[in-house]
């Protein structure tokens, strides 16, 4: 447990010291919200949620790429793969929750009439999905540029795809979009249930993907035999 918490703490410390990144993390969802402010409120809130998701995914991608060379030596220092990826995920979820707070308050200050419980749930889903999503991309694509371009592609698809179409359910942030519809348009409970279930399943699948990649990359190699000190 101590190892898990230490990795989470160090991830948090690293991110908090990247002031420029933090500023951009806050700026991105804000821009997404403001750019749609004059139009329909639902679009504005959905853009905000997508901005939060993209911002946290990007932070996760960069944190994963930065830790790539450090992790093998931490493995030798006594960490097991799950300490490293779960600790990092924990740290990223914490950062995501912290940056979500002002974006939860933003529509309140803006005087928007919507279901605030739904907004909180949608933000939670965005953050929950975004951390393992960015980590998985970072684990599969070792270079930041490729990872960032892939994230950009996914977010663009998410923005442009018809949310009612069956393909939309395959996009990672469909859950928060569905919950946002319940939040803004006062639709039936089904939107909320579907969204929560989707968020839960996608988070679990992405976390499993991260676990699988990390376990392979940081596995104990068969050619190496450890003996106790004689």
């Amino acid at each position: 447990m101590n190892r898990l918490v230490t990795v989470a703490e160090m991830t948090l410390r690293e991110l908090l010291r990247r002031r420029g990144v933090l500023l951009l993390l806050l700026l991105m969802p804000l821009t997404f919200y403001l750019i749609r402010r004059d139009a329909y409120l639902g679009q504005s809130v959905r853009s905000l949620l997508l901005g939060v998701g993209w911002a946290v995914s990007t932070a996760a991608l960069f944190a994963t790429t930065a830790a790539r060379e450090l992790e093998p030596r931490l493995r030798l220092a006594g960490y097991r793969p799950h300490h490293l990826y779960l600790g990092r995920m924990l740290g990223l979820w914490t950062v995501g929750l912290v940056i979500s707070v002002p974006f939860f308050l933003l529509p309140i200050i803006d005087g928007a009439d919507l279901r605030y419980g739904g907004l909180a749930a949608a933000l939670l889903c965005s953050v929950a999905v975004a951390a393992p999503f960015g980590m998985l991309i970072g684990a599969l694509l070792p270079r930041e540029l490729e990872g960032t371009l892939l994230l950009l592609t996914v977010v663009t698809v998410q923005m442009l795809i018809d949310p009612a179409g069956s393909g939309a359910r395959l996009t990672p942030f469909w859950s928060s979009r569905e919950i946002a519809t319940w939040t803004v348009d006062n639709t039936d409970q089904g939107y909320l249930s579907r969204g929560l279930l989707h968020g839960l399943v996608v988070t679990a699948l992405l976390a499993l993907g991260v676990a699988a990649v990390a376990s392979v990359r940081l596995r104990r190699r068969r050619h190496l035999r450890h003996l106790p000190v004689g």
């Binding site: 160090m10 690293e14 930065a66 830790a67 060379e69 450090l70 093998p72 030596r73 030798l76 104990r220 190699r221 068969r222 050619h223 190496l224 035999r225 450890h226 003996l227 106790p228 000190v229 004689g230």
Partner: peptide, 27 residues
């Protein structure tokens, strides 16, 4: 160090292993 697999051969280590890479390896 067990960070890479060989095509043949094996390594036996008694006790704890420490490894210092040529560069990187810090945060």
């Amino acid at each position: 160090a067990g960070l890479m697999s060989p095509d043949a051969g094996e390594v036996t280590v008694s006790g704890r292993l420490g490894y210092c890479p040529q560069s990187g390896g810090t945060a």
